[in-house]
Design a protein around this nucleic acid. Structure first.
Lengths: 181, 181
DNA sequence: GGGCACATGTAAGCTGTTACATGATTAA
DNA sequence: TTAATCATGTAACAGCTTACATGTGCCC
């Protein structure tokens, strides 16, 4: 939230939208905690509220103390997320799930990756077109590139995995079954 | 846990180790919940306990009902994990963090990816050498392949990101500074 | 006038982590 | 005999999700 407000002043609602739409590919926040967190950050003097006292909407912006705090927090060590990849779990126990269902899961994953490649291309174009964020753009593009590399890897893996599953004889629907007479 | 016990009977401690060592690249479990969960699964008749009543260690194995339940659970839709990538968050706000620190983070990520490539190669060799798990091996190798593709993508991305950061002029230590006289 | 997007919040409850506590067995 | 590993648990706490509750302003 401090990061979002470091780019531009936002309302709570806009913070929520920004995190979902802009950071969504690598970060998520519990929206039920945004307003409590805004209140806390305001009480700590890290963000300031402008406009609409109790009547309408208020816009929050980073104070100098808030910017300092953001830099501190960004400098802290990265805490790796505990992995929880349900797709891989299902494939690992694929013998119990069956080759057909595994195949479906892999196809879906490949399709999702291809779709996200298109999204990343659009985001890349959008960032390149925004002159007002020229100083941030190189960093933003690095994260977009990470998404693209990851999605490309997923596409390549899905193709390879489908070939492996077909070799197992699991593709009952439509696949070539060379070993049958 | 049902999946782990579907491959071989294990003690609670071994379940914990198996999840950490074998599934660790794509799954994690809260170990504080393993024993309560084992007790619950036993009460539901999904797993059976052999040996050591109250004295020593007991080994759990899957009952037919447990195998059925495992297949049901594997067939449920994949719940995507909420993304929380601290590395990408720091790079996105890299302007506040500074190019030097960003560079360090990217180098670390690339090194981790290279190290995991070596690990995956070892795992691949190990799976290929285990004749008793021949029926599971193709599925296990698909998940190993996913890890390899992902790590290779990370390595390629890191190189690209470092080049982008150097172009920004952030590499004060040792990098070529062509624009200087 | 109705529906939708904008806007702000609260609270119950679930999940998961962390730290603690204990004891047996095995290897140096 | 001392340390490490194997083994089994408990409990407090932190964090997050979900559902609920309410109201405004704008467009069709």
């Amino acid at each position: 939230m401090l990061g979002a407000l470091s780019v531009a002043p936002l309302t709570g609602y806009q913070v929520r939208e920004t995190i979902r739409d802009v950071l969504g590919h690598f970060w998520s926040e519990s929206f039920g905690q945004i307003y409590p967190a805004l209140a806390r950050l305001e009480a700590e003097g890290l963000i300031g509220r402008e406009g609409g006292d109790r009547t309408g909407s208020s816009t929050f912006s980073l104070t100098p103390a808030g910017l300092e705090r953001l830099r501190e927090r960004l400098g802290e060590p990265v805490v790796p997320q505990a992995p929880r990849n349900g797709l891989m779990l299902r494939l690992f126990f694929g013998r119990q799930l069956g080759p057909e269902r595994c195949r479906e899961l892999v196809v879906e994953a490949g399709d999702r990756a291809r779709a996200s490649l298109a999204t990343f291309a659009a985001i890349r174009a959008e960032i390149a077109g925004e002159a007002e964020h020229a100083a941030d753009a190189p960093y933003w593009l690095i994260t977009v590139s990470a998404g693209e590399h990851s999605a490309q890897a997923m596409v390549a893996w899905a193709d390879e995995a489908l070939a492996a599953l077909d070799a197992l004889g699991g593709s009952a629907r439509g696949g070539p079954r060379r070993w049958e007479r």
